[in-house]
Nucleic acid binder design. Structure first.
Lengths: 191, 191
DNA sequence: CACGCTTATGCAACTAGTTGCATAAAGCGG
DNA sequence: CCGCTTTATGCAACTAGTTGCATAAGCGTG
């Protein structure tokens, strides 16, 4: 039950239409929560029906017309309640780690190239986050809200740094495996 | 489409029944993939119907009776194909980061205690992984398969270390916020 | 002014994961 | 040998997220 709260947070930071929210989820919000435009429109409808947000009167609600939303007091209360409530961390799932574990049984063929590709993707993401950091948190911008938002961005930056380094480590291990790239491991049956 | 491949990998490492698989997912497999027993039984049924695994003949298939499965050659081929195929990294979602971002708008009340609790949970998980490392990868156990599995475990260990440290950092930032714990931020409306 | 492109909203169907509960056999204690 | 707990398998219903496509307005251009 986190998407509605992600949307409430985004709308409190700045009232927006569905498409604007989608773009913000693709950019800065994306480093801790992702959502497609379908999810967002559906959830906006629910939140409006529950009386937590409302469409800004200024724009008429016709198809192809922007419809911006703002958060109502009930929405702010709900967000505060949710933020304060204790929650257990969700177990994470990582496909690449799963593939490496599988490779220990069925062989590493084809994996190294994708490790390299992922390393580049993480590095590119890291550069994007650093750009956001330069733009949004210049020295001196350190009020309480800035500190909290910066903390969250730092998590994104540090995580991308982590994965970049871990993938470097993984690739160096690959280099040390017996003729890596086109072999199978001892227990792999030949076709 | 990763759960079936997680199960194939686990069954190749050791043929197991549904409940045994569930326990293995709760323990060591859990650091890169999690699943409930419902998911596992459902998926075992599908994999058997597709001819990728089969029930070991030794045990009769009655309710309350163990039913162990082994991977068929077609299952191994499918796993090798999947492992080698390029896949994009999935955007991650982190509820705690979302709550921190929300706290920048609605106030930090109640959050610090949960940050502390999460820190302890991550530290406990870290100790479990270190225990697995001591048990499963003693010095000298470093064949190609061991190296790959160890690499994956290291990712689990390093990630828990990362979060423990990040939460320490977050808590130290909290300590520096103006009378943290029961205040609201400037733009929060009072009820 | 008809055509194609972009912006913007949305429905429907699907896949994946979660929650709650049911069923049944085996082991054990009195 | 009766009831209790543990082990083991499974169904049904639900929530969350994804994919594919439809609709319609605005805008530019030949």
């Amino acid at each position: 039950m986190s998407l509605p709260h992600a949307i409430l947070t985004a709308l409190l930071e700045k009232p927006s239409s569905g498409l604007e929210l989608t773009r913000r989820f693709d950019k800065s919000i994306g480093y801790f929560w992702s959502a497609t435009h379908q999810q967002i429109y559906r959830e906006l409808g629910k939140l409006e029906a529950e009386g937590l947000i409302r469409a800004l009167a200024s724009e008429q609600p016709a198809r192809g017309q922007k419809k911006a939303y703002e958060v109502l007091p009930a929405g702010r209360d709900e967000l505060a309640r949710w933020t304060a409530a204790s929650q257990d961390p969700k177990p994470h799932r990582d496909v690449m780690l799963l593939r490496l574990r599988a490779a220990a049984v069925v062989g590493t063929e084809g994996l190294e190239a994708d490790l390299r590709r992922h390393r580049e993707l993480h590095e590119r993401q890291l550069e994007k986050y650093r750009e956001i950091e330069r733009r949004d948190f210049p020295p001196g911008k350190d009020g309480p809200e800035d500190r909290l938002r910066h903390l969250v961005l730092r998590a994104g930056i540090d995580l991308e740094t982590f994965w970049t380094q871990w993938l470097d480590h993984a690739l160096s291990e690959f280099a040390r495996l017996p003729d890596a790239g086109d072999r199978e491991l001892p227990d792999a049956r030949k076709a």
